[in-house]
Design a protein around this nucleic acid. Structure first.
Lengths: 351, 351
DNA sequence: GGATGGCACTCGGAAGGCTGGAGTGCTAAG
DNA sequence: CTTAGCACTCCAGCCTTCCGAGTGCCATCC
């Protein structure tokens, strides 16, 4: 009863079950996989695999299906990486290169993954907290409001409205003195000169230094702007997520035993989903199978993710993307797709 | 056989069917609705309603359900407007006022509608083509690229990268001469001064005039910028949509006879969905019932929309939002929710 | 003439029973 | 260790039965 063949049997079971969606029995296994032994032998192996908790039978006298643990072993040791085909790679490249801005890139990445895997895709926006400031823009809006536009290293653009602090307004109550183009231009120039390239950690100090050196009438305004910028970059809940391919879910709905509403619900809880993603932040590809996900709703689902935007290899990735599908998914294919898109994305994004 | 009572019967059927999801028979109708007549009488009325194509039976010896035509009549003549409760209104107001920027407002609006109606919500981004330019920002990125940030009347921020035309670069091949802060600042100032508030129709002319008056070394660059801006505002496919409450769909999946995949598919086709929305553009609330939607996938669904952002009443709305659910939806409730959110949105948005 | 009560008829869907086939585990033999 | 044979289990599909809800029509009443 060679250990080796037993694993081969496990692989066969996983592959068959994934492609047919039916519990697989000893007979079909021998027919479809040239294992060189008879069904009876397979049955012995299967008994051992079941003993080890790698496979299970839905009911007596039914075929076997892999358990979460079985999938785990398959992914870790049995799955062969299957690189994408050249046309596929080319498709990714062209489709992504057609994007006009960051939003567009991420949306397209989502659609790509959804289409390649036939599952749901999740793409997290580049984390603001890990981004540096590229440029800061101040636009007066109406008399008393200022639009603060923050452009990050990663090409993300965030905007916040700011009520101009009343103390900054002229003595007659109008804000004319401060909000004219010249003053604002100078403030912008100073702030930008000092802060360019700096990240969340350095910014407060940097800004403080700039504020000190300013004309007293500008201090209040500058402080408010600085605060807004730091807040914007520090906001945790402002993290965004793109979902794509929800329709795929419905099409594959029979694959989820308990219906797909728990899954859809989990997907709608963006906060929770974000937690899941950041938890999985690694540079390479990570796989969570079934109950390995702490989320109730995803107990029947597996999540395949990869970090992206970590520059040219190494370092913490700037955000995560991935694909979510039934535990009985095509792991090698999904992993390949997710990785491929993540890599291209890393290359395309400004770094 | 009074006409009046017959309509009353129709209303009763719609209301019962919507709340119970079961075909409704003559007996329960008399029990639940104090119509003051016997089941036999109701049966006569129902025969007439069926004759008129307003109701139908799924099978012989089953109760009646409203047809699309029946719902239409109900919506047009029978439904009583049911305003939202005060706490509900307050909830909308506070939730929307907490939003930090446009993206956030629209996302929140979507969630609100989804939650209020228990259905899927659709929110279209303010149309770029109907927006005026509020501010234009030019940010140098690396040596040879320029980030063009366009901020519209409606608070939408769009960004485009622009390769600096080589002719604009200095004779030595570097772009230093043109892309320094001073020149750029001047260009920005000129363009902004000329273009502020102008819309898609006026911009080309305006820009052309500015370009004429510029230093010859700047002409190429300015032209490129102007082109980018006009392109950005004119792009039709760049229209965006926010979806919310997809999970609600799954929860109500049994309400769709043919499963929900056609519906989900229709929702994923953003282009198509946009077409649907723009087709329904009216200032007030519009309702499309079942087959009135040209989309195959939405034959079992109804769409309730409202324009928003049309300033203080009147004029074309700047975009559309709405809710999509099964034909057997709570029309009065949905209409009230959609209208309420649209109104608050119109108020909150910069105009 | 409209409203009503009575009655025969229809039909969908749930409940129960039966059967075939796929699959297992065990044992004994190679 | 592998294999063939065999008895056993159990699901899934199929058919049948049966009940209740609901209808349509007719004769009757106000």
């Amino acid at each position: 009863m060679s250990e080796e063949r037993r694993l081969e049997v496990l692989r066969a079971i996983v592959e068959d079950y994934v492609s047919t969606r039916e519990p697989v029995g000893s007979r079909v296994l021998t027919e479809r996989h040239r294992l060189g032994v008879s069904p009876a032998t397979i049955r012995n192996d299967m008994a051992a695999l079941e003993e080890a908790g790698l496979i299970a039978q839905p009911h007596t006298s039914a075929g076997r299906i892999p358990t979460d643990k079985g999938y785990r072993l398959f992914v870790d040791r049995l799955a062969e990486v299957r690189p994408l085909s050249v046309p596929q790679k080319r498709a990714i490249e062209t489709f992504l290169s057609e994007a006009v801005d960051l939003d567009d890139v991420l949306t397209r990445a989502g659609r790509l993954i959804a289409q390649l895997t036939g599952q749901v895709a999740v793409v997290q926006y580049p984390s603001l907290r890990r981004s540096g400031l590229r440029h800061l823009e101040l636009v007066p809006v109406g008399g008393e409001r200022l639009l603060v536009v923050v452009i990050t290293d990663t090409g993300r653009v965030e905007q916040r409205y700011l009520e101009v602090p009343s103390a900054a307004a002229g003595p007659d109550g109008t804000a004319g003195t401060v909000l004219d183009d010249g003053t604002l231009g100078e403030l912008r120039a100073r702030l930008n000169a000092a802060a360019a390239g700096k990240g969340l950690t350095d910014l407060p100090v940097t800004f403080a230094r700039v504020v000190e050196s300013l004309d007293p009438t500008l201090v209040d305004l500058a402080t408010a702007v600085a605060e807004t910028v730091v807040e914007t970059l520090g906001e945790e809940n402002e993290e965004r997520i793109v979902l794509a391919g929800t329709a795929n879910l419905a099409r594959a709905s029979m694959r989820f035993e308990q219906g797909l509403s728990p899954v859809l619900e989990a997907l709608e809880e963006q906060v929770v989903l974000l937690g899941l993603l950041t938890e999985m932040a690694v540079d390479g590809v990570a796989v969570r199978i079934g109950h390995e996900n702490r989320l109730e709703g995803l107990a029947q689902a597996s999540v395949v993710t990869s970090g992206y935007g970590s520059g040219d290899e190494g370092g913490d990735p700037v955000a995560i993307l991935g694909s979510i599908g039934p535990t009985r998914m095509d792991y090698p294919g999904t992993i390949a797709s997710v990785r491929a898109v993540a890599r291209y994305l890393s290359r395309v994004l400004p770094h």
